[in-house]
Design a protein around this nucleic acid. Structure first.
Length: 584
RNA sequence: GCGCUUGUAGCUCAGCUGGAUAGAGCAGUGGACUUCGAAUCCAAAGGUCGCAGGUUCGAAUCCUGCCAGGCGCACCA
């Protein structure tokens, strides 16, 4: 599948318009002289030719141009109706043409895929947690953004490397280590009966609590960090032990969310490496030596001020380390067409600086770096604060959502006869669907306000609504006679032309462009919005028109349409990480 | 103070590379289950698109200023 049906239609239309404009106005227009758009409402038309840009060239009023052009245009194989409305010429697709072009294709798994990224490689870093506490809702947004973008890129034909840079060293983990050392009594996660990351997180909180009574702990934590840097065996052993527990905890959270990685980078292995690159730059005169021995770079001309890259004592900083990991990514995976960092917007400035520094260092790939920034998730009370216990823990949230879903399932009783594992798995899928859709439906730049009571509903614009549509439609298909279902697979005639049916076809026709746009804009919300719209259309179709009880030829068309919608819907849901359910 | 970012219906959000009457969901109101799954559908209601200028045939969309929220502005990460 190279070109989407919609693109073919646009190209055909564009060609046609060039000819007609030449005939009617003796003006040889360029395709750039006009724009083909989508009317706000499909009842007005399916494609629109706007006459504004031509008005200048032709010195005629747009409505006049539209009228003249429309009078010249005759229906053809693609368009059934063409009419001038104000300054627009509107085109209506022939439902048969849409049906023929879509009903078969949409059932293929390759539908909507593109070769845009064929032969190209993207490295996408996301998640990148600290190892001192469990993941919270903010990480959830990061993870979901990351994994969903990865799938969108794959759909565009890119080879995607999903990388996780683990912040496994530093003062934060030393705080947990210190508290554990002092008060942990060698307790293991098994003994405590909790996940490793949760256990380690408890000690991080404990450290903070104890710190209030005993400020000298801060000094002790710093000493521990020093011991770690010096390679003290006991410290290293403790560090390894706690980190291992945390990784096991993360693994289960990741798995539950459906998040995965191809490559892990560990800060403990990379944090020193940037020094060499910076010293080289210093030799080339790109960087400057400060009075106390620190190395800085002047980004004044880039309006980013002066930045220290290496401390006076020669030790690494955050940016030192990032310079190195970025360098390593290109070393490990060259050639990369893009190298993306999914990191919260509190680091917008950091990435601006980082990218600029690498540009100054002369790396040719510096212009292929991109920060995928996203807003924080806040609570009605304000910011989440781990110290005040107002953090929404991801594991807790997922569990809570699943339990809520369980209640809803019981209320309906569809699973009363089913084994509990099936019921549980369904509840889990619904809970996940609710969380994922909720987080992915708003644009990344926006802050999300998370109100536990209201945000995670199962009705309306939600993940479960999409899953319900899929289940409902699957249920319908199982009720169709096997013989009809069989025939519907390859049935491509629009034997009925109700408005809602044409709208559904039209929605399917947009799919490929939607996927492409979502990937290009790095914005999964483009897909969530489209998918919701598809479901809305289908539910209306389902409600308004009989399917199984329709007259035979109409029934086959409607079943064929249903099969097509199910296929595309299931695929969109999978890209979003939401499980399409047969029953719920 | 400087930089980035957000401000659209009571609430949560689409629309923002300028175009046809600004759209959904939730909440609230009124309807639709003897009919393919009511986690659904339909209807009415709800808006000075933060404010003020400007560019344009045309601005929620672009520019400027102001107001409000968020995030940055470390030899922290």
């Amino acid at each position: 599948m190279n070109k989407s049906l919609m693109r073919l239609a646009k190209e055909a239309l564009s060609q046609k318009m060039l000819e007609v404009i030449a005939q009617e106005f003796a003006f040889s227009a360029q395709a750039s002289n006009f724009k083909i758009e989508f009317p706000p409402d499909p009842t007005m038309g399916h494609l629109a030719f706007a006459c504004f840009p031509l008005a200048r060239n032709l010195r005629k009023a747009p409505p006049q141009i539209a009228k003249q052009l429309a009078s010249r245009l005759l229906p053809d194989a693609i368009f059934a109706r063409i009419e001038a409305v104000g300054p627009y010429v509107n085109f209506f697709f022939r439902p048969d043409w849409l049906a023929k072009g879509l009903l078969e294709a949409a059932k293929q798994d390759s539908f909507g895929a593109s070769e845009e990224g064929k032969g190209k490689r993207i490295l996408l870093e996301y998640s990148s947690p600290n190892t001192n506490k469990p993941l919270h809702l903010g990480h959830g947004r990061n993870n979901l953004l990351g994994i969903t973008l990865a799938r969108l890129f794959v759909e565009q034909g890119y080879e995607v490397i999903k990388a996780n840079l683990i912040n496994d060293r530093g003062i934060h983990i030393c705080k947990s280590m210190l508290a554990y050392q002092k008060w942990g009594q060698e307790q293991t996660p098994e003994q405590a009966g909790k996940k490793g990351d949760q256990l380690v997180g408890d000690y991080y909180v404990l450290y903070d609590k104890k710190l209030k009574a005993d400020p000298s702990l801060e000094e002790e934590a710093r000493k521990l960090l020093q011991a770690w840097e010096e390679g003290n065996p006991q410290t290293l052993a403790l560090w390894k032990k706690l980190n291992q527990w945390v990784y096991e905890g993360f693994r289960s959270t990741y798995q539950r969310m459906g998040v995965e990685f191809d490559r892990y980078y560990y800060e403990s292995e990379t944090y020193q490496g940037g020094r060499k690159l910076i010293l080289e730059a210093l030799e080339k005169g790109i960087c400057q030596r400060e009075d106390n021995g620190a190395v800085s770079i002047d980004l004044e001309t880039d309006h980013l001020g002066k930045k220290i890259l290496l401390r006076g004592d020669g030790t690494s900083m955050y940016i030192t380390q990032d310079i190195n990991t970025t360098y390593l990514k290109f070393k490990d995976y060259s050639p990369l067409d893009a190298c993306l960092f999914v990191v919260g917007n509190e680091q917008d400035n950091h990435f601006k600086v980082l990218f600029k520094v690498l540009e100054h260092f002369g790396f040719a790939w510096a212009n292929r770096l991109e920060h995928i920034s996203y807003g924080m998730i806040t609570l009605p009370e304000g910011k989440m604060k781990s110290r005040e216990g107002t953090v929404v823990d991801l594991d807790d949230l997922m569990e809570e959502m699943k339990n809520l879903a369980l209640l809803e399932i019981d209320k309906r009783g569809n699973f009363n006869q089913a084994p509990t594992e099936i019921k549980e798995a369904t509840a889990e899928a619904i809970g996940q669907g609710a969380i994922k859709f909720f987080i992915l439906r708003s644009g990344a730049a926006k802050e999300i306000q998370f109100n536990p009571k209201e945000s995670l509903s199962f009705e309306g614009q939600t993940g479960p609504y999409l899953q319900y549509t899929h289940a409902r439609l699957s249920s319908l298909l199982t009720k169709a006679e096997a013989k009809d279902r069989q025939r519907a697979q390859s049935f491509t005639q629009a034997t009925s032309k109700e408005r809602i049916e044409v709208q559904l076809l039209l929605q399917l026709a947009h799919y490929a462009d939607i996927l492409q746009l979502a990937a290009k804009e790095r914005n999964p919300a483009v897909l969530t919005g489209w998918t919701y719209e598809l479901c809305k259309l289908y539910n209306k179709f389902y409600y308004d028109l009989p399917i199984l009880k329709a007259e035979q030829e109409v029934k086959l068309f409607r079943l064929s349409l249903t099969l097509a919608v199910r296929s595309v819907l299931a695929k969109s849901l999978r890209i979003l990480g939401i499980q399409p359910l047969e029953k719920m």
